[in-house]
Amino acid sequence: MRTKPTGRQLRLGTELRKLRERAGLTATEAGQLLGSKQTLISNIEAGRAGVSPERVRTLACQYDCDDNALIEALAGMTGERKRGWWEEYREIMSSALLDLAEVEHHATHLHTAITVHIPGLLQTVDHARETFRQVVPDLAPPAVEHRISFRIKRQTVLYQDQPTPYVVFIHEAALRMQFGGPAIARAQLRHLLDMSERDHITIRALPFDAGAFPGSGQSIYYSRGPVPQLDTVHLDQSHGPVFLDAEAQLHKYRVLLERMEARTLAPEKTRDVIHAIARDL
């Protein structure tokens, strides 16, 4: 029995619970259909008990789910035996940050909209270090270095053999923030330009003259799963990451991102803006 299920294990349990509830079954009734106890169903749905791909398919059949793409996506969440690299940080980083790395690792597409920061996946080491130096309460130097190491390892999703497609909407305000002074800021902007040349990365700026726009004042991080029902929204709060996966919430943030895109500059014009800001530093 697991005592500390990962975010992915919890998500699998949540989706199985949703299927059961749509079928109008209690955990006790579901257990009876499987010839098992209610506690097994409850433990599976809480992420405390493992479940095989075959049992997922059996549960989906008992719940009258005929969405084969969803069923196979859920079955695919069960069989991972290898520990992810983020588990190395289990004792020194919050579980929410480990869950974020796990979501990124399994995402089929990543999409960020951000107003006052450079996205973590595109930060240089020096920019990241300056960011973590501003955390309240202050972090000890070793903790800062652990955070930097963790953030840089998260970036491997953009460098692997089959890199994850990544779309970024970034406000001009974030591009003009001089974290660490002009030299560090200039190097950060050059890094954005270099990354924007990669085929799987799209960076689009929201200029000041775009005015008001949907979703202003918040950062949105949208991770697509193998099927839309398994998408995840990550909101970065001062007290830590928050994850959203309810259907209505996912729809809301898809619409927000679509509307924001209409206010952004094309990638080519975005590069022109970044070049101009870097020259002015």
Rank of each mutant, 00 (worst) to 15 (best):
Gly180Pro: 05
Asp161Ile: 03
Leu121Thr: 05
Arg190Met: 15
Leu121Ser: 05
Phe179Trp: 01
Gln188Met: 14
Arg129Trp: 03
Ala210Ile: 08
Ser216Asn: 06
Asp138Trp: 11
Arg151Tyr: 02
Ala185Glu: 15
Asp161Trp: 01
Ile170Gln: 06
Ala210Lys: 04
Gln123Phe: 10
Lys153Ile: 00
Val135Cys: 02
Gln134Phe: 00
Asp161Ser: 09
Leu189Tyr: 13
Gly217Asn: 08
Ala183Gly: 12
Tyr166Cys: 03
Pro137Asp: 04
Pro182Asp: 15
Ser196Trp: 05
Arg198Gly: 07
Pro214Asn: 09
Gly217Trp: 02
Pro141Gly: 11
Pro182Glu: 15
Met177Thr: 10
Asp138Cys: 10
Asp199Lys: 13
Pro182His: 13
Asp161Leu: 06
Pro142Val: 04
Phe179His: 00
Ile203Lys: 06
Arg190Ile: 12
Glu197Thr: 09
Arg204Val: 04
Tyr159Gly: 02
Gln218Thr: 11
Lys153Asn: 08
Leu139Phe: 02
Met177His: 11
Ser216Trp: 02
Ser196Phe: 08
Asp209His: 14
Ile203Gly: 07
Gly217Leu: 05
Leu158Val: 00
Met195Lys: 10
Phe150Thr: 08
Asp209Met: 11
Pro142Gln: 10
Thr202His: 05
Val136Cys: 03
Arg186Met: 11
Gln188Ser: 15
Asp161His: 08
Tyr166Thr: 01
Pro182Met: 10
Gln155Arg: 01
Met195Cys: 09
Ile203Met: 08
Leu122His: 09
Ala187Asn: 15
His171Cys: 11
Phe169Arg: 01
Leu189Thr: 13
Gln218Cys: 04
Ala128Glu: 09
Ile148Asp: 02
Arg147Met: 12
Ala174Lys: 12
Met177Asp: 08
Asp194Glu: 15
Arg198Ser: 10
Leu158Trp: 01
Leu175Cys: 11
Asp126Cys: 11
Thr131Asn: 05
Gln188Phe: 14
Asp209Glu: 15
Leu158Thr: 01
Gln160Glu: 07
Gln134Gly: 04
Gln178Ala: 14
Met195Leu: 12
Thr131Phe: 08
Thr131Val: 12
Val144Met: 04
Gln123Trp: 14
Leu122Pro: 08
Arg186Ala: 15
Ala173Cys: 11
Tyr159His: 10
Gly181Ile: 13
Thr202Arg: 10
Glu197Val: 03
Ala185Asp: 14
